[in-house]
């Protein structure tokens, strides 16, 4: 006789899933639904419910040069930070892969920046990059006013790109390193026997075999640059100077909570969400077709 108390597998499965489902519902589907609702309606000036306006909110946005500015800024930010974060991480990983003593220590140390909340990170970099007293203040001594993120839009963009890249270098490094370690040693040795030097091996053997990882990180980095940048922008530049760092995600917050244009902000967040979803779909479609090592 079966003595243990048993549940039907469906019931117990649902029970275990329930807390997670609840969280996903409360923090994703519900606000997502609300945003959809706001995006297609307008609030009556003096209260009294929302009026259905169809795509009017979107049409407004797409005609607005300020919105297009934020899209451009987001693309510059995404491209810059992804290039730096992935490029530096790849170089570090290739160098580390050649001399692998204590790699478990590298692994945990390099992933720490990723665990730091964006606002804390932003604050730290605000000090580091401060024009009066930060690391770059030396430049200002030599050439007055050459570096000032508070006044110069390009400086501000550089500042947030640097801060964001710093956070993702460690994250990318971990992925690159484990992918490099996954390449059979004998392949590298075979290439060495074939007369290929260390640098040539990187380009001929290691990089091609890293393509799945490269692509995965590319999508993750771009996606995160759209989403995870809010805290850094808010602490370091507040979108300024003169909207030079007003990324899409920051503009959503600013229009919605500072400008109280819920419908406009909701429409922007729908656009951003669609962008991120498209990127994610692209990643899954593409990665499944990539080569594997065997």
């Amino acid at each position: 006789m079966e003595k243990r108390v048993t549940f039907s597998s469906t019931t117990i499965g649902l029970l275990f899933a329930f807390p997670m489902l609840l969280l996903v519902f409360v923090f994703f589907y519900w606000p997502g639904g609300q945003a959809l609702f706001w995006a297609f309606t307008l609030e009556q000036p003096w209260g009294g419910g929302n009026k259905w306006v169809g795509f009017q909110n979107f049409a407004h946005l797409l005609k607005d040069p300020i919105y297009w500015n934020s899209i451009t800024r987001s693309l510059v930010f995404g491209a810059g930070s992804t290039a730096i974060a992935m490029g530096v991480a790849l170089v570090l990983a290739v160098l580390t892969d050649r001399e692998m003593k204590g790699h478990s220590a590298y692994r945990s140390i390099f992933v720490w920046p990723y665990a730091i909340a964006a606002p804390a990170l932003g604050l730290a970099f605000r000090f580091i990059l401060a024009p009066e007293a930060g690391l770059l203040s030396i430049l200002n001594r030599v050439w007055p006013d050459i570096w000032n993120p508070a006044l110069d839009g390009n400086d501000a963009m550089i500042a947030i790109i640097v801060a964001f890249s710093w956070k993702y270098i460690g994250y990318n490094f971990i992925f690159f390193l484990s992918a490099l370690q996954g390449i059979p040693r004998s392949l590298i040795e075979a290439a060495a026997m074939d007369g290929s030097g260390p640098l040539r091996r990187v380009f001929d053997i290691q990089l091609p075999l890293l393509t799945p990882t490269l692509f995965f990180l590319l999508v993750i980095n771009i996606t995160e640059s759209f989403q995870d940048s809010f805290g850094i922008v808010d602490i370091m530049t507040q979108g300024g100077p003169a909207r030079a760092t007003e990324l899409m995600v920051y503009k959503i917050y600013f229009d919605g909570f500072k400008g109280l244009d819920y419908s406009g902000a909701a429409a922007q967040s729908i656009i951003l969400m669609v962008l991120v979803i498209l990127l994610t779909i692209l990643q899954f479609r593409f990665i499944e077709r990539r080569i594997h090592y065997k």
Partner: peptide, 20 residues
């Protein structure tokens, strides 16, 4: 000398073919 300077060719146990 580096492997490439020795004039040897090697066949590996797991073949070590470049998969790409």
């Amino acid at each position: 000398l580096e492997p490439r300077e020795r004039g040897c060719a090697m066949v590996f146990q797991n073949y070590a073919l470049y998969p790409h």
